[in-house]
Design a protein around this nucleic acid. Structure first.
Length: 936
RNA sequence: GCCAAGGUGAUGGAAUGGUAGACAUACAGGGCUUAAAACCCUGGGAAGGCCUAAAAACUUUCGUGUGGGUUCGAGUCCCACCCUUGGUACCA
C-alpha cells in the first residue's frame, strides 16, 4: 500500500491543533529553550521554497528539545510596517492594513501545510496598536535618556521612495529598495544615538556564539579605530584646525591639510580666504553631487586650495597649505586630516595631482628578521622599455630565487644610482638608460642560500627607462657563469611572476606608484628619527600636544521616515514648550485611518495633511500644538519583537520581569541576510533596555545560526521576474510535507546556498515511502544485527540536530533504513526508537506510524531515545594495513590488540609481504582500531 | 583594494591528520510488464597492465584549484599563488 501523504498530514495537523500540543508555558520544573526565526515581512508574493528552510530547521530543533524534556518557546509573527508594505499597497490600490491582513492570511495557510510547531497563541504583528504601543514606549524612554534627538544634518534622501534613509538602508550609494541614487537633503530628523553603544556592542560580540563572519561584519560596520586628534594652528590667526589621524607617527611628513567641504572653517569669513568665491563654488558643487556622481568620478581627486591661508605643522613648525577636497568626509573624525602623501595612498594621489611636496618619514622594513646578519648596502634596478611596455627580468631558476629584477651590492661611498647603472651593464649589457625615479631606503632581511649567509641590507630601488637598444654583449656576466637568463617581460606579467619580497616592493613603489603605507623606521623626524614608527605614536602625540581618541565608522541612526505606514513618533511640538513627549498613559499614538496616504515628496509626511490628527493640545501647557508627523523606520518593530513573544498579551508592560527571566535570552536565532542592520539595531535596543532594567541579559541572541539561501533550479535568485519561483504548496501537494522537509534539510550544509532540484526531492519522497512499507515488517523481537547501527544512528542524529548538521543526520537515517531493508525486518522496540529520532524531521508520517504501533499519545510528546554507549564500543575493529603510507590490506583485530599482534597478523597478508619485498622495517606506526603503517 | 567563507565525481555533497567520494540525484545495464510508469537488482574517479573471442575478477600508477613544505601518513596542518561567493569601500 503506497503512502498517501495528504490524508495523513491533514489528520496529524488536526490532532496537534486539537491537543494544543505546542503551547509554551513557564514551567519552573523544566529548563527552557527559546528558539526563534527571523520573523518575515508578509509580502504579497507569498512563500517560495526558500523561505521555509530556516523554519524547518527551528521546527526540528524545537521538537527535538521538547522530546528531551525542555519547555520550548517557538513563536511566529509578522514584521508588517515599512516601505515594502506601503509600496505594495500603493501599487495595488489598496490600504496597507488590508494588504497586510490578506498577506498574513495567505502566509499562515502556506506555513500550515508544512506542519510547523509554532505556538500561534503568541502570534504578534508589529502593526497592531497593542504592539506598537511598546515600540513607541521604547522611543519615549530613549528620549527621556537623551538617546533620541532632533537634527538638521544632511541625510540620505531617496527621491523615488520620497523618504530619508539611514546609512544601513543604502546599497552602496543607491536606495536598497528601489535602486534610485540617493541625494543629500537637509531635513529635521529624529536620530538615535547608537554610537553611544558602539564600544559595548563591539566588546560583547565575544559573548556570542555567532558565526565568525557575522561578528566580523558587525566589527567592520562599527569600525572602531584608535588614533589621535592633533591641532594645527592657522598662521597669523587665532583659528585652528583639529585633525584626526591613526598615524600620528608620520606627522613630520604632513605637508598639507585637507578639510571636508562641510568643515566649519571654510565658512569662517574672518580668515581671509582670498579665493573664497572659488572655494564656496567647490563646496556647493560637491553638495549637489549624488554619491553616484562622485562614484562615477572614481577616486580621481578634486579639491581647491585655500589661498592666503596656511597652517603650522606642530612637529616641523613649517607653514603648510590648506585644501578643501571631497575625499575627506565631513561625518567622520573631525572632518579634517593632515595629509602625509609619502605614506597614504589617497594623499599621495592628491599630492601628485596638485604637485605638492612628498616627504618620506618612514622607511620600510621587509623580509624575515635573521640571526647574526651580515650588513650590506645594495640596489634594485628596474629597467622599463616604455615603447613595448616591458620590463627587464633575470630568471635565476627555481633554486636560486626565480624571476627577479636586477639586484646587486654597492660599495661604501659609491653613488647608489651609479651602482645601479653598473649592475645593469654587468648583468644585461644595457647602458643607454635614463634614471626616472628612486625609492627611499628599504631595510630588507633574508637568507642568501646561494652564499649560505644571513643578510640585512639597506636597499634603494631605481627605475630606469630604456633610451636605445645598444648592448655591450662582451661584458655580460652570465656569459661567464650562465646563472641566469635575461628577458623582457610584459609589465603585467612581471607584477605576477616576480614574487620575491624586496623586488616586489620596489616594483609596487616605482611601477604601480603605491606609497609605503605600513610601519617602519622613522627618518627625518627630529628627535624620533631612527625609532620604530609603531612604538612611537604615543610619544609623538604627546610632543605635539594632541590627545589619543577612539573613533567609529558607525553613524547615529536616522530614525524618521516621511511615509505613512509606520509607527507615529510619539512627540508633540508646542510653540511654548518645544518638543513635548506624549505622556506614557496616552500611548499608543494611533496611526490615523486615511483615504490617501501617498508620500508628499516635499519632505513632509503624508500625516501632516490630516489636520484633525495633527492639531492637538500640548500636554504641558494645554495650548494648541502639533503632532510629530514622521514615522519610524521598518527596523523599529523588529528591534525588540523577540521580547514580546515572551509575554505577548501584557497590556501593562512591554514584558513582565518574571517571564523575561524565564525565557531570555533567545537560545538559538535562525535567519539569513540582516547580518548587519537588524542584528545591530536589536542589540542596541536590547542594551538600552538592559540599562533601564527592562531585560536582564546583556545580549538578546545567544547563538545565531546563519541560513544559506535556496536558489532556483537555474542557479539564479528565485524571483517572479525570472519566472523561476517554486511554490511550496505545489511541492507539498505532489510529494508531501515530510518529503519536502527532509529534502530541504538534506540539500547540503545548512549555511550553504544551494540550487533547488525537483529531481532530488523524489529521493526523499522515496525514503518516506520505503519507511511506510517497512511498518509491515516489524517483528516483536529485536534484530541483533541492527542494534549497533541503531544506537550509532541515535547518537549521530542527536548531535547533528544540536549542531545544525541536518544533512548528515538525514543521511544517517537513510543508512539505517537501508540496513533494515537488507535485514528484511526490525524489532518493535527498535522501530519505536527509530521513529522517535525521525519524528522532528517527518512529523506527520511518524505520527501515523506511531499510532499504528498502538501508541495512544502523540509521538511528539514521547521522550527522545537514549543511545547505549556500550553498544557503540565494539570489541573488534578492522585495521587498515599500510606499507609506506599506501594501503595494502586490512586485518580485523581486537580493540586492545598489541602492536606485535597487529604486525604478526598483517604479515599473514600476501599483499603486505609482497609490498615489503623483504626489505628491512624501519618503523612501525600503530593506531589501535585504525591503522598499522609499516615503513621500510 | 580590504575583510570573511569556500574550491572534492556528471550534480548536491560525506570524511576526530589514518581505506577519499558516505548518503542522495542524474546516468547506464538488467529484472518485473503485452508496453510504459512505478518498483527491485547491479555498475561507475582517471589512465594503464594482465588475461581473454569478449567480459568479470585481479593488479599498477595517478587523483580533493595550482606550486612548495611539515608528517610514517595530508582533502584535512603551514607558506605562496589562482579562482568563486558573500560583506565592505576615499572611514585618514
Amino acid at each position: 500500500m503506497a503512502y498517501d501523504h495528504s490524508d495523513i498530514e491533514k489528520k496529524a495537523q488536526q490532532m496537534w491543533a486539537s491537543l494544543d500540543l505546542y503551547r509554551a508555558s513557564e514551567d519552573p520544573q523544566k529548563k527552557k529553550k527559546y528558539i526563534l526565526d527571523m520573523f518575515p515581512y508578509p509580502s504579497g508574493e507569498g512563500l517560495h521554497v526558500g523561505h521555509p528552510k530556516g523554519y524547518i530547521a527551528t521546527d526540528i530543533y524545537s521538537r527535538h528539545m521538547r522530546m528531551k524534556g525542555y519547555s520550548v518557546l517557538h513563536p511566529m509573527g509578522w514584521d508588517a510596517f515599512g516601505l515594502p508594505a506601503e509600496n505594495f499597497a500603493l501599487k495595488n490600490k489598496t490600504h496597507p492594513r488590508k494588504a497586510v491582513e490578506q498577506n498574513i492570511t495567505n502566509f499562515k495557510a502556506q506555513l500550515a501545510h508544512l506542519g510547523f510547531d509554532y505556538d500561534w497563541s503568541r502570534e504578534i504583528n508589529t502593526t497592531d496598536p497593542s504592539y506598537y504601543h511598546w515600540t513607541q514606549w521604547i522611543f519615549l524612554k530613549m528620549l527621556e535618556h537623551g538617546l533620541a534627538f532632533q537634527s538638521n544634518e544632511p541625510i540620505n534622501w531617496c527621491p523615488s521612495c520620497m523618504t530619508g534613509l539611514a546609512n544601513e538602508d543604502l546599497d552602496g550609494a543607491v536606495c536598497e529598495r528601489c535602486g534610485t541614487p540617493v541625494v543629500k537633503k537637509n531635513l529635521p530628523q529624529w536620530v538615535l544615538k547608537i554610537t553611544d553603544y558602539a564600544d559595548r556592542m563591539l566588546a560583547d560580540l565575544d559573548l556570542l556564539e555567532w558565526p565568525e563572519h557575522i561578528k566580523e561584519a558587525q566589527r567592520n560596520w562599527i569600525g572602531r579605530s584608535e588614533g589621535a586628534e592633533i591641532t594645527f594652528a592657522i598662521a597669523g590667526s587665532d583659528a585652528s584646525v583639529t585633525v584626526f589621524t591613526t598615524r600620528p607617527d608620520t606627522i613630520f611628513g604632513a605637508t598639507y591639510l585637507v578639510l571636508a567641504p562641510e568643515h566649519v572653517l571654510i565658512r569662517n569669513t574672518e580668515l581671509g580666504i582670498k579665493n573664497s568665491e572659488e572655494v564656496q563654488h567647490y563646496v556647493a558643487a560637491t553638495a549637489t553631487k549624488t554619491e553616484i556622481e562622485r562614484g562615477a568620478e572614481g577616486k580621481e581627486k578634486t579639491g581647491v586650495k585655500l589661498e592666503g591661508v596656511s597652517a603650522i605643522n606642530p612637529a616641523t613648525k613649517e607653514e603648510i597649505p590648506i585644501y578643501v577636497a571631497d575625499y575627506v568626509l565631513g561625518g567622520y573624525g573631525t572632518g579634517a586630516i593632515m595629509a602625509v602623501p609619502a605614506h597614504d595612498e589617497r594623499d599621495y594621489e592628491f599630492a601628485k595631482k596638485f604637485d605638492l611636496s612628498i616627504r618620506t618619514v618612514v622607511e620600510a622594513v621587509t623580509g624575515k628578521p635573521q640571526e647574526n646578519p651580515e650588513f650590506r648596502k645594495s640596489i634594485v634596478a628596474l629597467v622599463v622599455d616604455k615603447k613595448n611596455n616591458k620590463i627587464l627580468t633575470l630568471d635565476w631558476g627555481t633554486e636560486l630565487g626565480g624571476k627577479l629584477f636586477i639586484g646587486g651590492g654597492r660599495e661604501e661611498g659609491e653613488d647608489a644610482a651609479k651602482a645601479a647603472a653598473r649592475e645593469i651593464a654587468e648583468e644585461t649589457g644595457y647602458t643607454d638608460l635614463k634614471l626616472v625615479d628612486q625609492t627611499a631606503i628599504i631595510h630588507h632581511s633574508y637568507f642568501a642560500y646561494s652564499k649560505n649567509v644571513a643578510r640585512e641590507i639597506e636597499a634603494i630601488g631605481f627605475l630606469f627607462e630604456l633610451n636605445g637598444d645598444a648592448r655591450q654583449e662582451q661584458q655580460l656576466e652570465h656569459d661567464e657563469h650562465g646563472k641566469f637568463t635575461v628577458s623582457w617581460m610584459p609589465l603585467a606579467q612581471a607584477g605576477q611572476e616576480v614574487t620575491e619580497t624586496l623586488h616586489r616592493t620596489v616594483f609596487e613603489r616605482l611601477v604601480l606608484g603605491h606609497p609605503h603605507t605600513g610601519s617602519g623606521v622613522l627618518v627625518d623626524s627630529g628627535e624620533f628619527t631612527g625609532k620604530n614608527s609603531e612604538e612611537t605614536k604615543q610619544a609623538v602625540v604627546a610632543a605635539v600636544g594632541g590627545k589619543l581618541v577612539t573613533r567609529y565608522k558607525l553613524r547615529d541612526w536616522v530614525f524618521s521616515r516621511q511615509r505613512y505606514w509606520g509607527e507615529p513618533i510619539p512627540v508633540i511640538h508646542c510653540p511654548n514648550d518645544g518638543v513635548v513627549p506624549v505622556p506614557y498613559e496616552d500611548l499608543p499614538v494611533l496611526l490615523p485611518e486615511v483615504e490617501s496616504y501617498e508620500p508628499t515628496g516635499t519632505g513632509e509626511s503624508p500625516l501632516a495633511a490630516i489636520d484633525e490628527w495633527v492639531n492637538t493640545k500640548c500636554p504641558k501647557c494645554g495650548g494648541a500644538a502639533k503632532r510629530e508627523t514622521n514615522t519610524m523606520p521598518q527596523w523599529a518593530g523588529s528591534s525588540w519583537y523577540y521580547l514580546r513573544f515572551m509575554d505577548p498579551h501584557d497590556s501593562d508592560q512591554l514584558v513582565s520581569l518574571k517571564k523575561e527571566k524565564y525565557w531570555a535570552p533567545v537560545d538559538v536565532y535562525v535567519g539569513g541576510d540582516h547580518a548587519v542592520r537588524h542584528l545591530i539595531y536589536a542589540r542596541f535596543w536590547h542594551k538600552f533596555l538592559y540599562d533601564i532594567s527592562v531585560v536582564s541579559t546583556l545580549e538578546p541572541f545567544k547563538r545565531l545560526e546563519f541560513l544559506g539561501f535556496i536558489l532556483a533550479e537555474d542557479g539564479r535568485k528565485m524571483s517572479k521576474r525570472f519566472g523561476n519561483v517554486i511554490n511550496p504548496d505545489d511541492v507539498v501537494a505532489e510529494y508531501g510535507a515530510d518529503a519536502f522537509r527532509i529534502y530541504e534539510m538534506f540539500m547540503g550544509p545548512f549555511e550553504n546556498t544551494t540550487a533547488w532540484s525537483t529531481a532530488s526531492i523524489a529521493g526523499t519522497a522515496r525514503f518516506v515511502d520505503r519507511l511506510w512499507q517497512i511498518q509491515d515488517r516489524v517483528a516483536p523481537e529485536s534484530v541483533p544485527a541492527l542494534e549497533t547501527l541503531l544506537h550509532e544512528t541515535i547518537r549521530k542524529v542527536t548531535s547533528d540536530i544540536e549542531t545544525f548538521k541536518f544533512n548528515t543526520a538525514v543521511s544517517q537515517m537513510m543508512i539505517f533504513l537501508n540496513a533494515v531493508e537488507k535485514e528484511g525486518t526490525i524489532g518493535k522496540e527498535q522501530w519505536s526508537m527509530y521513529l522517535r529520532v525521525l519524528a522532528p524531521f517527518a512529523p506527520h508520517v511518524t505520527e501515523e506510524l506511531w499510532e499504528r504501533m498502538g501508541e495512544m499519545s502523540s509521538i511528539h510528546l514521547a521522550s527522545w531515545p537514549a543511545y547505549d554507549e556500550a553498544l557503540l564500543v565494539s570489541s573488534e575493529k578492522e585495521v587498515t594495513v599500510q606499507v609506506n603510507g599506501k594501503r595494502r590490506g586490512a586485518v580485523t583485530l581486537a580493540v586492545d590488540a598489541s602492536q606485535e599482534t597487529a604486525v604478526t597478523e598483517a604479515l599473514k597478508l600476501p599483499a603486505v609481504v609482497a609490498a615489503l619485498g623483504g626489505k628491512e622495517q624501519k618503523r612501525v606506526v600503530f593506531v589501535p582500531g585504525k591503522i598499522l603503517n609499516l615503513v621500510v
